[in-house]
Amino acid sequence: MSAQDGRVQRHDEEEDFSTAGIAESPNAWKAVWQNNKGMFLILLSEIAGSSMDAIVRFLQQGGHGMHPFQVIFARMGITFILSTIYMWWTNVPDFPLGAPSVRGLLILRALFGFGGLFCLYYSVHYLPLAEATVFRFLVPIVTAFACSVLLGTSFTRKELLAGLVALVGVIFIAHPSSIFGSVDDNIDTNQAGAVDDVTPAQRLVAIAVSIAGIFGASGAYTTIRIIGGRAHALLSVNYFAMLGTAGSALALLAIPGIGFSMPHGAREWGLLVFLGVLGFVLQFLLTAGLQLDKSSKATSMLYSQIVFALLFDWAIWGVLPGAWSLFGGGIVIASTLWVALQKTGPVAKSPAKDVAVDEESALLGSSRVEGGEQVFERRASISA
């Protein structure tokens, strides 16, 4: 057979495939994105969250040093403006204050959230980002226990065991001298914007504040569970942002010795604005990702935040947690990840009208059917 005949035959075969409806294979990268879109959006949200923590630490340590209340004011103020515009543009039901029956709960959620956020921003001033991030992995277990007491949801022995093991991990992170002896774990670098010396007392206070922040975040998430579908998710976010803005402004004006200091230079102005924008981006990406994929594979991406925190600690400040802290952090992450990836029952069908979720309520649990009744399964929740 001549070369020309071969070309004609191949052309005829291509036409046969075309007429048979066999299309060319899709781009491999595009297929991976389409099949794992929710997971990738959650991963991007964790990058945004870790970037926010790094900006917060830099603003408090670099230059003239900003007070945590001023950083909260900037972040929450911009998030409030953006979320308000978004809710107005999309005609969110009961905008802007929500239904009268849940306004008190929304305020309570905002108060808990504000307390948890302040504790987080205070702790990152004295702790490496990775250590401060690890404490947030305790929030789901505390919230699960609170929901079991207040709402009657299940709290299994496995969750109790994981909580006790995680507390052991916290002890290793704190490594008090009364148990571990003298351990040199101070943050001591010569890079710009780093803490030159953190005393053991300051470190222990920061850890105590981090633990208090766990209860603040858990209180916020438990309140969100009580609210349920009676308020749009963005209303919860907006109450949090509004109270955070007003509360931090009042603290800056009323507490002696703090005051409001103007940012120094274009860099600090830019970081403050970027911080607020990232806060809204975090909410948007995480909510979108969880709406697309609520599987364990997707929610496990939340644990990637500790990796990004370690990278920021090393790249910006040239520090990493000590051996005891890394060991304790590994215990906390392993115990909470073990609970988060437990096999659940069949997922209940969604109601006819979808209820919007936010980063907190979506991570706290998805519903499943057990014994003819709808109960809730806890999931890992990190962001305040």
Rank of each mutant, 00 (worst) to 15 (best):
A194Y: 00
A194H: 04
A194E: 07
V195T: 14
V195Y: 05
V195H: 05
V195K: 14
V195M: 12
V195C: 10
D196G: 12
D196A: 15
D196K: 13
D196M: 11
D196I: 09
D197G: 00
D197P: 00
D197Y: 15
D197R: 14
D197H: 15
D197W: 12
V198H: 03
V198Y: 04
V198M: 05
V198L: 08
V198E: 09
T199L: 11
T199N: 10
T199W: 13
T199Q: 11
T199R: 10
P200H: 06
P200G: 09
P200Y: 08
P200T: 07
A201I: 10
A201Y: 08
A201Q: 12
A201D: 10
A201R: 07
A201T: 13
A201G: 07
Q202N: 11
Q202H: 06
Q202E: 14
Q202C: 00
R203C: 04
R203T: 07
R203A: 08
R203H: 10
L204F: 10
L204I: 12
L204Y: 12
L204A: 14
V205W: 13
V205Y: 10
V205R: 05
V205S: 09
V205G: 01
V205K: 08
A206G: 03
A206L: 04
A206E: 04
A206W: 00
A206C: 05
A206H: 01
I207D: 04
I207K: 06
I207A: 06
I207R: 02
I207W: 04
I207G: 02
I207Y: 01
A208V: 13
A208M: 13
A208G: 13
A208H: 01
V209H: 03
V209F: 02
V209G: 01
V209A: 12
V209W: 01
V209T: 11
V209Q: 01
S210I: 05
S210K: 06
S210R: 06
S210N: 11
I211Y: 03
I211T: 07
I211C: 10
I211N: 02
I211P: 01
I211D: 02
I211H: 02
I211F: 11
A212F: 08
A212Y: 00
A212R: 00
G213S: 01
G213K: 03
I214T: 02
I214Q: 06
I214V: 15
I214C: 04
I214M: 04
F215C: 01
F215A: 07
F215D: 01
G216A: 09
G216K: 08
G216I: 08
G216Y: 11
G216T: 09
A217V: 14
A217Q: 10
A217C: 10
A217T: 15
A217H: 09
S218R: 05
S218D: 02
S218E: 02
G219D: 08
G219I: 05
A220K: 13
A220D: 13
A220P: 00
A220Q: 15
Y221A: 13
Y221M: 12
T222D: 07
T222A: 12
T222G: 08
T222C: 13
T223E: 09
T223H: 07
T223V: 14
T223A: 13
T223D: 10
T223N: 12
I224L: 15
I224V: 14
I224S: 15
I224Q: 12
I224N: 11
I224F: 07
R225N: 14
R225S: 15
R225C: 04
R225W: 06
R225K: 15
R225P: 05
R225H: 12
R225F: 08
R225E: 15
R225D: 12
